[in-house]
């Protein structure tokens, strides 16, 4: 009985994290290994600490995200991936008890600067959530929402153009062009998620954040979104949180491994999955904790 539960702790990915391996004995608190920094960073994060009330969720994380790369963030659930991602476009501002300190820059501008307005920031750094969340409006209105809010267009024809263009980029156009005015909530899950991506693209952001965008989708819909990410990375910088290591391996060029609020390792994706530098990374990718 006892030995079995010990076994489960080690190999069951659903088992509680951080139990099998005690972080303090494994170099926690040391610097991130690999190469988190780069010279042509689109966004860079320095010494980021995030607290929910008194509980610290992110410990001193520094990381650069390159222009036009797909950066994957992996790690056991609850390790702070979403929290970190949401810092990149200040979505954490909407959470009352969340406190952020540290520096996050976008093209060398501090986005947490007192004078930084979040409205243009979020237009430049868009976000796609875990669960597809189309507005209960028509497909057209969903995509047109951002451009309207930001006053990007003055004429209907321009708006039509943006809507079509965004839907094409999200490879959804062919499926919905005949029913642009039916509700977005009537689409399938995968289509809804692509609609949300189109909605984000419509305000022409520079960076797209994706928080487990495929976790609510079936394998076929997932494959389509992954294809889409490869295309999008030509025009956008993408940071994606995923719980699927295969997905990270397929879509990303660099991978960051988080553990209990700390950034353990950042390396080229191939390196992370074939020859990880840190023993925790290795433990995670070999499935010793989920």
């Amino acid at each position: 009985m006892n030995s079995k539960s010990g076994y489960n702790r080690l190999f069951d990915p659903m088992a509680e994290t951080g139990q099998a391996l005690d972080f303090s004995q494994h170099g926690l608190g040391q610097k991130t290994v690999g190469n988190p920094f780069s010279v042509k960073a689109k966004m860079s994060v320095r010494n980021l600490n995030v607290y929910y009330d008194d509980k610290q969720a992110i410990h001193d994380v520094s990381l650069d995200i390159n222009r036009n790369e797909v950066m994957a963030m992996i790690g056991p659930s609850g390790c702070g991936k979403s929290t970190f991602l949401r810092c990149l476009n200040r979505m954490n501002d909407t959470i009352e008890n969340c406190n952020v300190n540290g520096e996050v820059t976008l093209d060398e501008q501090d986005i947490y600067h007192k004078k930084q307005d979040v409205v243009p920031l979020r237009a430049r750094v868009g976000i796609v959530f875990q669960k597809p969340n189309p507005f209960p409006k028509s497909i057209y209105e969903n995509v047109a929402y951002g451009p309207k809010v930001h006053g990007l267009v003055s004429r209907r024809a321009q708006l039509d153009e943006i809507v079509e263009d965004s839907l094409r980029k999200a490879s959804l156009w062919d499926e919905v062009k005949d029913r642009l005015f039916s509700p977005g909530t009537g689409l399938s899950g995968g289509q809804q998620q692509r609609l949300c991506i189109a909605r984000t693209i419509a305000v022409s952001p520079e960076v797209i954040l994706m928080d487990e965008p495929c976790s609510a989708l079936d394998p076929i819909a997932t494959a389509r979104i992954e294809e889409l990410m490869a295309e999008l990375s030509q025009n956008f910088t993408i940071a994606i949180v995923t719980h699927s290591m295969q997905q990270a391996a397929r879509v990303s060029s660099r991978t960051a491994y988080f553990h209990m609020g700390r950034l353990i390792e950042v390396n080229d994706t191939r390196r992370v999955f074939t020859n990880p530098e840190h023993e925790l990374t290795e433990a995670y990718i070999t499935g010793r904790f989920g």
């Binding site: 476009n89 979505m91 909407t94 979040v118 409205v119 243009p120 920031l121 979020r122 237009a123 868009g126 976000i127 959530f129 669960k131 969340n133 189309p134 507005f135 209960p136 929402y145 951002g146 809010v149 930001h150 949300c196 909605r199 984000t200 305000v203």
Partner: peptide, 17 residues
């Protein structure tokens, strides 16, 4: 659902929008 508010805020809409 909060996810709808997040969706809108994430696109850069203000709270009143």
């Amino acid at each position: 659902p909060q996810s709808l508010r997040d969706g809108s805020l994430g696109l850069g809409a203000t709270q009143s929008e």
